[in-house]
């Protein structure tokens, strides 16, 4: 009774606007639609701008000559005549500690991303398509690990690393990042693989493919979007990491730690910190934009197709 009476008005009200909308799609409605959307769009632009200000400020600051930084404002960069100079960047590249830390960061970020993708894809495939006892229980455990914050592991693993001589090595940092990236990585890859039609695998098996062949010739190419998004996530995350490197390294410093340690508490060396920070920000951005398209595809993967 109640559902019947509740349903009643719906058909009478709903078709009315739907029928009206396509009829008068004239100038007035376009204006109306725009003004309705405009507040949201303006708001979003303001948010984006607010987010960009520190980055832009950092960029302009990094272009100011070292002796002017403390006295002049960023507008001197765009004033006429401009005082902008790339001398600070030259100084960064002349600073051996910073250059070597960039190299260390690259090793860690690329190394752990490659290792993570490989392991997560293999594990995801196994969880999705191979039958083995305890598979589902194990997968639940993996999902459970998603909620473990990495901070709780810092001290125990520090002590393990000490015994295993992994402290202060690139490998140690890579392994830590891979370990904490795996739950999410396996989760993402497994869900992607599950969405691949079973017929494809069976067809490949009948065609004569072994599981390894199926994985490398069929699954990995099909999973490229998922792999791209996982790789970007992990790359950005580990590039920007500070706490893990701060805990597990003394001399093997990635760029974040190096910048941190070059910050002087009193006298300012902003002419070095600013360009170095900007560099450390721009590299992941470049990576992101380079893979942006596959990234978006990857997020949609499974839901749409």
């Amino acid at each position: 009774m109640t559902t019947a009476s509740a349903d009643q008005p719906v058909p009478s009200t709903k078709p009315a606007p739907a029928a009206a909308a396509p009829k008068k799609d004239g100038f007035a409605t376009k204006i109306g639609r725009w003004t309705r959307r405009a507040p949201l769009q303006i708001f979003l632009m303001l948010v984006a701008l607010a987010w960009l200000v520190p980055t832009l400020g950092l960029f302009f600051t990094s272009l100011l000559p070292a002796d002017l930084i403390s006295q002049e404002g960023w507008w001197k960069v765009v004033s006429d005549p401009s005082v902008a100079t790339f001398a600070n960047y030259r100084a960064v590249f002349d600073n051996e500690a910073l250059v070597s830390s960039l190299w260390v960061t690259l090793q860690i970020a690329v190394g752990n991303t490659v290792l993570l993708v490989l392991v997560a894809a293999l594990a995801g495939y196994a969880f999705a398509w191979l039958e083995f006892p305890g598979r589902d229980a194990l997968f639940v455990v993996v999902i459970g690990l998603l909620v473990v914050p990495l901070q709780v592991a810092l001290i125990p693993i520090f002590s393990i690393y000490n015994d295993a001589h992994l402290f202060d090595t690139v490998l140690g940092l890579i392994l830590f990042h891979v370990a904490f990236g795996l739950p999410f990585g396996i989760f993402l890859m497994r869900n992607f693989f599950v969405g691949i039609p079973k017929d494809l695998l069976e067809s490949a098996r009948i065609d004569g493919a072994s599981e390894i062949t199926i994985f490398f010739k069929l699954m990995l190419p099909l999973a490229l979007p998922a792999i791209a998004s996982l790789a970007i996530f992990q790359f950005l995350w580990t590039w920007n990491d500070l706490i893990v490197a701060l805990t597990f390294a003394r001399d093997t410093k990635p760029i974040t730690v190096e910048i941190f340690s070059q910050l002087r508490q009193f006298g300012t060396n902003i002419e070095l910190i600013a360009p170095a920070s900007f560099l450390s920000m721009i590299i992941p951005l470049v990576v992101f934009f380079a893979f942006q398209k596959s990234f978006a595809n990857g997020l949609l993967a499974g839901s749409v197709k």
Partner: peptide, 29 residues
């Protein structure tokens, strides 16, 4: 195992490999 039974199967969904060309699909086996 299937791959050693010397059979070929045509699936209802066709199960073509989406990332391979027609040529490579046919040549796969």
């Amino acid at each position: 195992p299937s791959r050693d039974r010397d059979i070929a199967m045509v699936f209802q969904s066709y199960a073509l490999y989406p990332h391979l060309s027609v040529y490579d699909n046919i040549a796969f086996g």
